[in-house]
Design a protein around this nucleic acid. Sequence first.
DNA 1: CGATCGTTTGACAAGGGTCAAAATGCGTGG
DNA 2: CCACGCATTTTGACCCTTGTCAAACGATCG
Lengths: 257, 257
Amino acid sequence: MSPRNCLSVMEDLAGFSDAEPPHLVRLKRLVPLAPNATDALLAAGMHATAFEARREVIRTGAMLCGPLILTQGWAAQVREFHDGRRQILHLLLPGDMISIPQGPRTYAATTTLALTDTRVAPAPPAENGLGTAYALSAEIERFCHLRQIARIGRLDAYERMADLFLELFDRFRLAGLAASDSFALPLTQETLADCLGLTSVHVNRTLRQLRQEGMIDDRRRAVRLMDADRLRSIVDYHPLTAIWGAADLKSDTVAPT
Amino acid sequence: MSPRNCLSVMEDLAGFSDAEPPHLVRLKRLVPLAPNATDALLAAGMHATAFEARREVIRTGAMLCGPLILTQGWAAQVREFHDGRRQILHLLLPGDMISIPQGPRTYAATTTLALTDTRVAPAPPAENGLGTAYALSAEIERFCHLRQIARIGRLDAYERMADLFLELFDRFRLAGLAASDSFALPLTQETLADCLGLTSVHVNRTLRQLRQEGMIDDRRRAVRLMDADRLRSIVDYHPLTAIWGAADLKSDTVAPT
DNA sequence: CGATCGTTTGACAAGGGTCAAAATGCGTGG
DNA sequence: CCACGCATTTTGACCCTTGTCAAACGATCG
């Protein structure tokens, strides 16, 4: 790997240096978009609000006023218990959408929390094919929720970690943010633990095992999957594409690695 | 309790003896429905197909042709792993809806399995306010998925069981199928285990504990919650109603108990 | 009445949690 | 540039919840 590693590549992207912003790449890959739709998305990206890490973007029960787009940084849907326990229901990556209203609901079902410093933009109105893209985006989120249930319910720590990494890898590729075999992961082990239903100590032990077995390389706040196919077969991985047919994630990507 | 116990009351209901069918009660409670909408729902109930226990109602990846209504019996959204492990993603109760299409999706994201002998009817077209009811129904399902993640991820066996029972109780009340403090539960401990991410042996131990502590009475394929409020505080229970504001589950119900 | 399925129980093993401390990294200010 | 403080990572020792294996028990049904 060149000194310009995958992380720095992705930081460039996050800054919109020269490539398209992740939410545009992502939605375009879900649905072919007309020029006025892509223009609207680009324009929306300019009106993003910044949230510092640990800030709440939306609180459970809050009134919703239209869908949002996470243009930079990581966020999460979380459920907090009064004794301090916390479960991350779903990780939100740059380019993901937040709280797409489906039907007449007006209240947020979960709290959305910024995990890193983030930027959040209001999504443009659902015109010119964007409605379809938003719906598909919501469908993917639903699929991830289901996978999260199966992951936590029936996989052991090693498998959970691998399965999560595979999902993140797929989702990053969808947004054009993954190198050929790696992606940025700016989360603490504590946060990973809250996502996987484990403790941070055990996350640490599990990462060490994955590392020692040569399955991953997780230096510099990024993860490289050394043998994604083997991991996929270990955890019986169900790809994201199962739900909408065909979109080809292989033919990616932004970085020469 | 009279010799006519809560279970027999519910069996009557399931047979549509004299009361309204559960799906009608449920949808009416979500959204006030015009007479032609309720007529359509009643008529749909007449065209139900029977599925034996263990039969697949919909298989992952199958083409969807409109929403369905589970008019009798229990079903579940499941994820099966190739090594035999199985995770129930969501339990479907009489009156629940199956695979409400949201947006352009055409393929089922999960397998739906009949857990008992069931009857499944095609839902009438989304006219006359039914569209709103279907959307709210989907919203509830989404909320249950999220709760399932938190339940499995951060609660121990005892809490998981209690939390699940509280959810089932709420959902049964919504469909008018719960007595004042109990509901039918025709599932095996093995099935409960697949739902809670445990083994059947441990489910058995946990039920015994709940029983010995006087929290539940689970004879005759039904569960009576002896101290629902205490259970709610133990598991920091988030009620179903959180997402649509107000519908009053307290002022239920069909049975004098 | 055997056969089958589900429940119950016990003994034991193991995965993961808890507690505590050391090591590492990193931003800040001097 | 160094020193400090703080957050995070790493490791070890120990314990507890839950899984595994096996057998007995009970119910239901042809």
